[in-house]
Simulated assay, not measured.
Amino acid sequence: MRRSILARISTWAIRIVILWLAFTFLWVLAYRWINPPVTSLMIRDWVAGQTVRREWRSLDALSPNLAYAAIAAEDQNFCRHTGFDFEAISKAIESNRSGHRLRGGSTISQQVAKNAFLWSGRSWVRKALEAYFTVLIELTWPKQRVLEVYLNIAEWGIGVYGAEAASQYYYGHSAARLSRAQAAAMASILPAPLRWSPHKLPHGVARKARSVQRWIPFIQREMSGCLHLS
Results as ranks from 00 to 15, higher is better:
198 P>Q: 10
189 I>H: 08
176 A>Q: 09
55 E>V: 15
152 N>K: 06
118 L>A: 07
73 A>C: 08
89 I>L: 14
67 A>H: 02
87 E>S: 12
94 E>Y: 03
220 Q>M: 11
177 R>G: 01
87 E>T: 12
168 Q>H: 14
13 A>V: 05
3 R>S: 15
80 R>I: 05
85 D>G: 02
188 S>D: 07
132 Y>I: 11
95 S>I: 00
110 Q>N: 06
186 M>Q: 09
121 G>Q: 03
192 A>V: 00
208 K>M: 11
180 R>C: 01
2 R>I: 15
1 M>L: 15
100 H>L: 01
151 L>P: 07
146 V>W: 05
55 E>C: 01
110 Q>L: 07
95 S>M: 01
112 V>P: 01
20 W>V: 12
208 K>C: 03
226 C>W: 00
6 L>A: 15
220 Q>R: 15
106 S>E: 06
218 F>I: 06
204 G>T: 08
181 A>L: 00
168 Q>K: 14
203 H>Y: 10
163 A>Y: 02
118 L>N: 08
82 T>I: 10
225 G>W: 10
140 T>D: 08
19 L>W: 05
91 K>P: 00
118 L>F: 07
78 F>C: 09
30 A>C: 11
52 V>M: 03
207 R>E: 13
107 T>D: 02
191 P>G: 03
88 A>F: 04
59 L>S: 10
36 P>N: 09
180 R>Y: 00
222 E>K: 12
90 S>F: 06
190 L>M: 13
180 R>E: 09
162 G>M: 12
200 K>P: 05
63 S>W: 01
173 H>E: 09
50 Q>A: 00
125 V>R: 13
217 P>R: 11
220 Q>W: 10
9 I>A: 14
120 S>P: 01
39 T>L: 06
200 K>D: 13
22 A>R: 04
95 S>Q: 09
31 Y>G: 02
124 W>H: 14
113 A>F: 04
151 L>A: 10
188 S>T: 14
175 A>K: 04
109 S>M: 13
58 S>L: 04
228 H>Y: 05
5 I>M: 14
165 A>I: 03
230 S>C: 05
50 Q>F: 02
91 K>T: 00
36 P>K: 01
155 E>W: 02
